[in-house]
């Protein structure tokens, strides 16, 4: 892989580098191209990686916090959490502990949601995550830090590059990531006061064992 990459800025240059919008658009395009290139090269690899990290449809995998994942693999958590925090930093609780918990609950909410997808669609989404988690693909999109430590502002620049990317694939990947954040967070009751949604009405519903 590395020999296919363009010259990357040195560490010092990276710290000083403030990309213009034009550069961002280009890196978004490069990122998408990288995604495409790697996806061609890596067909078949994700399934092996998935088997290692907890295969789709296999027994649920715990990550140490005793919460089973149905769609994500434990290795996806940093990326998913970074995307939630980047897109919704303005909406999440400011207190660090409460924010961490809100992000965690959003990731689990998105996990449940994606687990309802048709298996073939789940596989496509997992392939996209596998690629995004490869460091060279991240670099091509202009995101230098690992997902687990990336600053929300840097993640947002990366997401904007995908969103405005020239390739369909880039914009599709943006929708996937955007869905992790918005579906994950707004399926939580804790999210609703922030937008003024009062929640559904409390309606006495039919009870009992009969189907109707």
């Amino acid at each position: 892989m590395p020999e296919q990459l363009p010259n990357l800025p040195t560490h010092a240059a990276r710290a000083a580098w403030r990309p213009s919008r034009r550069v961002l658009l280009q890196t978004g395009l490069l990122g998408a191209l990288g995604l495409w290139g790697v996806s061609v090269v890596a067909r078949g690899i994700p399934s092996a990686a998935a088997a290692e990290a907890g295969a789709p449809g296999a027994a649920p995998v715990a990550d140490g916090s005793d919460v089973a994942l149905a769609f994500f693999r434990p290795k996806d958590r940093p990326l998913a959490g970074a995307v939630v925090e980047a897109l919704l930093d303005w909406a999440l609780p400011p207190d660090p502990a409460a924010r961490k918990e809100a992000v965690e609950r959003s990731v689990l909410g998105a996990d449940r949601y994606f687990a309802s997808y048709t298996p073939a669609v789940q596989d496509e989404a997992r392939q996209a995550l596998d690629l995004l988690e490869l460091a060279p693909v991240r670099w091509l999109g202009g995101l230098w830090s690992d997902w687990s430590v990336a600053e929300p502002a840097a993640v947002n620049r990366y997401l904007e590059g995908l969103r405005r990317g020239r390739l369909n694939l880039s914009r599709q990947v943006y929708r996937l990531l955007e869905g992790i954040a918005t579906v994950g967070w707004y399926s939580q009751t804790a999210a609703w006061p922030g937008i003024g949604y009062p929640g559904p009405p409390d309606v006495p519903r039919p009870t009992g064992e009969a189907p109707l």
Binding site: A115, S116, S187, P201, T207, P211
Partner: peptide, 28 residues
């Protein structure tokens, strides 16, 4: 059935829609 309908959108999407309501055409 109605006794399951909590009107909680996340739950309804996951349990009653194709791909959670995110089924897409081939190009997304």
């Amino acid at each position: 059935t109605a006794r399951d309908f909590t009107l909680h959108e996340g739950t309804a999407s996951e349990t009653m829609y194709y791909d959670g309501g995110s089924r897409t055409t081939k190009d997304g």
